[in-house]
Nucleic acid binder design. Structure first.
Length: 463
DNA sequence: TTTTGAGTTGTTCGA
DNA sequence: GTCGAACAACTCAAA
């Protein structure tokens, strides 16, 4: 008679116990080991706020597991070494994961699969309602444009939330664990959102009651902040998008589209893994960018929130203060970096990846490429955000900029968006504008026009 | 097979 | 003050 079977549930970006297909699959064994690997390759490029949020999510997962008689095994090291070692320690006959479609994760899982030898690595489910790669055009080619993707994705549909009841799983304890590390030192006064599955559901239910109704109208208002705040939870899989989709009605189209954008960009990254680094539209590589000392000084001013443009500075300071930035403002600061400062989008994307708690490679890189006009659904080159009119339009009373840029607190209402216009001029402790928007816009348009007009793209137009 | 129209997120200019 | 046009080029699907 063989003894009880054991499986390893290797958690990664799926730090939850409910609606978890891979966990349900792992529970096919008699006992389940819960494992998380602190992978140095992923730890290094993460900023302190994101690491702290990850650690808090892990502590929450561990606490939940303990409530059900289990515990989380945390090990530091290289996954292809650690996962087989834990499987050996536990005498496991299978290792279960949610499929990772990112370029790093997919390659890592392949290595782990090979290192496991006889023990199968079983992939069930993913972080998406529809797995990247599943949705293609009728000719079999991947979509490059959102709207047709969205139509096909909507028609394709997705499964209802899965059953995975942690109370009915027999958890295996006693495998040696390094424990969750101490939180890294955080910037003073930084307040992270509550981590973990319960916090994700609580945040979601609050948004469903209070915010969802006004989402379509107010989501672009950074002063009102009527966004779902689900991005950090989706990032670490504290909640699954299909859980959110199941709660949406016909009238919640705008929010459903936002979830679809996340799926679209994951699919694009899946089909074009190089697009995390490289230009989706290759001809755009020739765009001239500013380099050298002034460019570096401009970049430093941008990161510090000292460009002299209030909405840009407010956003960049919010990023440093909270590890989060309102989506509308992300677009404004991105446009400013690329089209006013003429810096390459990759620099901005790296800064965002480091500082955002919700940083998601696919959404971040492709959002930046969209702004830079180098990606899918590329913004027409002439679409240059005006930081002043954007500020007045989406922060009409100036409340957002005054919250993050205290130097502007003496300026009433929308006047905070144009401190240089006030009777007293720019406040002494605030900065003068580092560039002139109108002039840089003109330069940007000329650059794009020249690049588009090159004969190499087969559509030469001399002007 | 070819044509046609529409497409996340904008701004400016001139009537 | 409001409104439409112009600012390109390319993808995709329906006709």
């Amino acid at each position: 008679m063989p003894g009880p079977t054991t499986s390893v549930m290797w958690f990664r970006r799926d730090l939850r116990l409910r609606d978890h297909p891979a966990l349900a699959a792992a529970a096919g064994a008699d006992r389940v080991v819960a494992l998380f690997v602190l992978d140095d390759a992923l730890r290094r490029p993460s900023g302190a706020p994101r690491l702290a949020f990850l650690y808090q999510s892990l502590r929450d997962l561990d606490a939940e597991l303990r409530r059900h008689g289990g515990e989380l095994v945390v090990r530091r090291g290289t996954p292809e070494n650690v996962v087989p070692a834990v499987a050996r320690d536990a005498g496991a006959t299978s290792v279960h994961i949610s499929t990772d479609f990112g370029p790093y994760g997919a390659a890592r899982d392949k290595r782990v699969d090979a290192a496991l030898g006889e023990v199968p690595l079983i992939r069930t489910g993913s972080a998406y309602a529809v797995a990247p790669g599943r949705i293609v055009k009728s000719d079999g080619q991947p979509f490059r444009v959102f709207t047709p993707f969205y139509r096909t994705w909507s028609a394709h549909g997705w499964p209802a939330p899965a059953e995975s009841d942690p109370a009915r799983i027999s958890w295996r304890r006693g495998i040696s664990s390094a424990g969750v590390p101490q939180d890294p030192k955080l910037p003073p006064r930084l307040i992270l959102p509550d981590a973990g599955e319960q916090a994700a559901y609580a945040t979601w239910h609050r948004f469903r009651q209070d915010g969802l109704r006004h989402y379509s109208d107010d989501r672009n208002r950074p002063d009102l902040d009527n966004t779902s705040r689900m991005s950090v939870y989706l990032k670490y899989g504290a909640i699954h998008p299909r859980t959110l989709l199941a709660d949406l009605g016909k009238q919640d189209e705008t929010f459903r589209r936002e979830l679809a954008w996340r799926e679209f960009y994951a699919a694009v990254l899946h089909f074009w893994p190089d697009s995390a680094r490289d230009y989706f539209v290759p001809s755009m590589r020739r765009m001239p960018y500013a380099t050298g000392k002034i460019a570096d000084a401009h970049f430093a001013a941008w990161t510090a929130g000292r460009t002299g443009y209030p909405i840009v500075d407010a956003g960049m300071r919010q990023l440093l203060a909270e590890g989060w930035m309102h989506n509308r403002v992300r677009m404004i600061v991105a446009s400013f970096l690329v089209k006013d400062l003429h810096l390459e989008w990759t620099r901005g994307a790296r800064h965002f990846m480091r500082h955002l708690v919700d940083a998601d490679l696919a959404s971040n890189q492709h959002g930046w490429q969209w702004t830079a006009g180098t990606g899918t659904d590329a913004a027409p080159y002439f679409r240059v955000f005006n930081p002043i009119s954007q500020g007045k339009k989406f922060d009409p009373d100036g409340n957002y900029v005054r919250r993050y840029v205290p130097e502007l607190r003496g300026l009433p209402g929308a006047a905070a968006h144009e401190p240089w216009q006030g009777p007293a001029g720019v406040p002494a402790d605030y900065v003068e504008r580092i560039v002139d928007h109108a002039a840089e816009r003109t330069r940007s348009l000329a650059n794009y026009r020249r690049l588009r007009g090159r004969p190499s793209n087969g559509h030469a137009t001399d002007r």
